[in-house]
Simulated assay, not measured.
Amino acid sequence: MPADLQPSGGGRARRAATTVALFALLTACGPALPPRGEVTTAESAPSAASAQPDVQAAAPVRLRIPDIGVDAPVAPLDVGEDNVLPAPDTNEGTGWWRGGPEPGERGPAVIAGHVDSYQGPAVFFRIAELEPGQRIHVDRSDGTTAVFVTTRLERHAKDAFPTEVVYGDTPGAELRLITCGGEFDTADRRYLDNIIVYAMLER
């Protein structure tokens, strides 16, 4: 991975989001990150709870969403030599984009997961059921837990993915959960949309 993808602290999101050109590959669920040199900003202002100075948080190790029955490991995802972010290696686990901030640091932490497979439902199968105000718990390697509150859920066609809003810098700590959704193209064996959950840090 290029060195400019690995700054620490809240500045990681700003530098990574404005200097990286890559695509995520998530069983064809891949949103593009901003092109090199593009300056991005978030669409929404943070709540008082999420507004905070830069902090260094530990890496995420587990994702828990009680309202939809998610209790899954989180593994780091790194960009490969082909500038592609691979999918999580299991349908039951999730993947955190290590080039962005850790959950709880300022900026948008991104966690992706599969919605299903030929074997049946996957970790984010029920993600579309999430509603504003429900909580997402991210356990970290130092034993702490970052708790986020969902603010909204969106579905976008893959050719209209809201890259700036998802990956753009934010004044506070936020979280994005991303998976596939919408209609399934049986010819290409891929979903046509992405589902995105937005959440802000509560504590």
Rank of each mutant, 00 (worst) to 15 (best):
V74I: 15
G113M: 11
A75G: 00
G120R: 05
E81A: 14
E131L: 14
P101F: 03
N83W: 09
G99W: 10
A58C: 08
R98G: 01
E102M: 15
A51S: 10
L63W: 08
P101H: 00
A112D: 03
P86S: 14
D54R: 06
G133N: 04
P73C: 01
A51K: 01
G107V: 13
V84H: 02
N91T: 15
G99L: 12
R64A: 10
I111L: 12
V74Q: 03
A122N: 05
R126D: 15
G113S: 13
A51T: 09
R64K: 14
A72N: 00
F23D: 05
R36E: 08
N91L: 09
D54K: 09
A75Q: 15
D89T: 13
E131Y: 00
E92S: 15
P46A: 13
A49Q: 10
D67C: 07
T27H: 07
A58L: 09
T40V: 13
D71M: 12
L25W: 07
D116I: 14
P34S: 07
E105Y: 04
V84T: 11
P108W: 02
I127A: 14
T94F: 04
P86R: 05
A58I: 01
G37F: 12
L77T: 04
A45M: 07
P132T: 05
R135I: 02
A59L: 07
V123G: 02
V55F: 04
V110S: 05
G80A: 02
A57H: 00
F125V: 05
G30A: 07
G104D: 05
D82Y: 04
P132H: 10
G30H: 03
R106G: 13
G107H: 13
A112V: 14
A58R: 02
A112M: 10
